[in-house]
């Protein structure tokens, strides 16, 4: 059987990119969640919300890039992409929950 090398060597000059890309994954991830959140809160106009999806696309790209940079196996790469798809729905699910729960439990305390 071919030996499976789980952790191939990473060349010294690849580290900076890995660090930057790993950060970008999270920064774009927050950007996506933040734009959707802010528009739902009415703090920014509704029409800005679609730009959130651009962040999502950038995030997906960065995560893909990261999985390549660290030489992850094709299986891991697929798992990561499925996770990205799940993340796409997360904020929508989240605000569905907020709306439903406010309907059910009423607005904040009226005192």
């Amino acid at each position: 059987m071919e030996p499976v090398i789980m952790l191939p060597q990473i060349a010294a000059d690849e580290f900076l990119r890995i660090f930057v890309v790993a950060t970008l994954v999270l920064v774009f991830g927050v950007g996506y969640a933040a734009l959707i959140t802010l528009s739902k809160m009415g703090l920014i106009p509704k029409r800005v919300a679609p730009f959130g999806y651009i962040f999502w696309i950038l995030q997906a790209y960065c995560l893909y890039d990261l999985s390549v940079l660290i030489h992850s196996s094709p299986f891991t790469a697929k798992v990561l992409m499925v996770a990205m798809l799940a993340y796409f729905f997360a904020p929508h699910l989240y605000f569905y929950l907020i709306e439903q729960s406010e309907k059910r439990y009423g607005e904040a305390e009226e005192s």
Binding site: V25, L26, V27, V30, I70
Partner: peptide, 20 residues
């Protein structure tokens, strides 16, 4: 919490990076 645990944690949590 998100920055320190989330971002800085994620940075080094994959074994491919953590070995370094």
């Amino acid at each position: 919490n998100f920055l320190g645990a989330g971002i800085w944690g994620f940075f080094h949590t994959l074994p491919q990076v953590n070995i370094y």
